[in-house]
Write a protein that binds this DNA or RNA. Structure first.
Lengths: 215, 215
DNA sequence: ATTCAAAACGGAACAGCGATCCGTATTAAA
DNA sequence: TTTAATACGGATCGCTGTTCCGTTTTGAAT
């Protein structure tokens, strides 16, 4: 999403420059490609043929290269798109559920993000400069999102309020890589345990905790 | 060298089975390919086109695939061949030079081996099962070779005799990866320093050292 | 509504690659 | 010397990344 935000009918404040608007078909192609790449990467890995991605997106290969000249651009694009999607859900869940419930649901949603990220892991650590900004993008978006959820739950008195959001994000990430056979189920149990731990120090539960909660 | 040892005129003990002898042209092809692959890998990396390797070796691509069905086989073959060559030089140097001199020369020769190994490093850690035996092969060959050199120098009274060969091998390996701009020159100085350190505790030098020499 | 130029599209085409296959040449034993 | 086994070479196939350009779409101007 390096080009523009999501809204297509983005009338927006007309700035002084007479820049031609982004053409609708271009926007469609970019979106379709990111969506298709996400799917194809998940099934065939990040080295999947360009043609397969183009076909899945319903565009020609030329369009792929015009929007994403290098493969790493496409990978980075998918990564950012998934970060955005996961972060956006934080607000949605927050609006639709009680604070602590929203927190719990989102943390499990976050584990899904981490799971899909696995295929990209090796590519991410390949030293390609196209990926250099991704770690920052990751933190700058996830940390505030989780911080708000934690804040909400803490204000409602459901959890104790002294957990570092980034600590928690990293902890879940680490749990994911170490999961064995029934990874998904095991991970779910572990995350549930973390949430229970958060509840423990809550004022409403009358628990006594010893200072900062190290996850 | 998974097939046979080096000697072409290897009459060897005729076992009961009437196995046809290894054809000379096949042996030539295998040798030429390993030699060519070593060269090509050094210039074009381990992902170099098969055709380039075949051409350098003066054989057809079919011959490449017959001798090394998978690329990893070729890489592993080159690795073992270089280990063998480096180990063999230990004995040669030992025969041609005074013990401590031989040790010094060989350690510098070993740094060359490590340097050429750099390109293979990523491939080696790729999880390909074809590489799983290489670490053992490395240690099982290098450790005794260096042990003999150290032993000889110690018996001659040139160095103190309590250095773990494997420690020393690893130390030089670690020095190599950390070398910066003028890597080669820096590495040479550092290895010289190590050798000087070995000499320090020698009986002939009258030095007093404090127990085991940790490199 | 119509016009029009800029922008984007699609996919044919090119080049490079891994891998296979089989007619030919080489080799070692009889 | 003969001969069957073995190895060789390179044409060939299918798949890939990448480019290029004629065609189509789009948004603004009329």
């Amino acid at each position: 999403m390096s080009k523009e935000s999501t809204a297509p009918s983005d009338g927006g404040t007309p700035t002084g420059t007479k820049a031609r608007r982004v053409r609708a078909d271009a926007q469609r192609s970019t979106d379709a490609l990111l969506e298709a790449a996400k799917t194809v990467f998940a099934t065939s890995g990040v080295d999947a043929p360009v043609r397969e991605i183009a076909e899945t997106a319903g565009v020609g290969v030329g369009t792929v290269y015009r929007n994403f000249p290098k493969r790493s651009d496409l990978i980075a694009g998918v990564f950012r798109r998934e970060v955005d999607a996961c972060v956006a859900e934080a607000a949605e869940l927050s609006a639709a559920h009680p604070p602590c419930d929203a927190l719990s649901r989102w943390l499990h949603r976050y584990t899904e993000f981490i799971a899909t990220k696995k295929g990209l892991a090796t590519a991410l650590h390949s030293g390609d400069p196209a990926f250099s900004t991704l770690p920052d993008y990751f933190r700058e978006n996830f940390e505030p999102a989780l911080a708000r959820l934690l804040e909400g739950a803490a204000e409602a008195g459901d959890i104790c309020g002294d957990v570092d959001p980034y600590d928690l994000l990293r902890a879940i990430g680490n749990l994911s890589v170490a999961s064995g056979d029934d990874g998904a189920a095991h991970l779910r149990r572990m995350v549930d345990l973390l949430i229970k731990g958060l509840r423990f120090g809550a004022p409403g539960a009358g628990g006594r905790d010893t200072g900062r909660n190290t996850v």
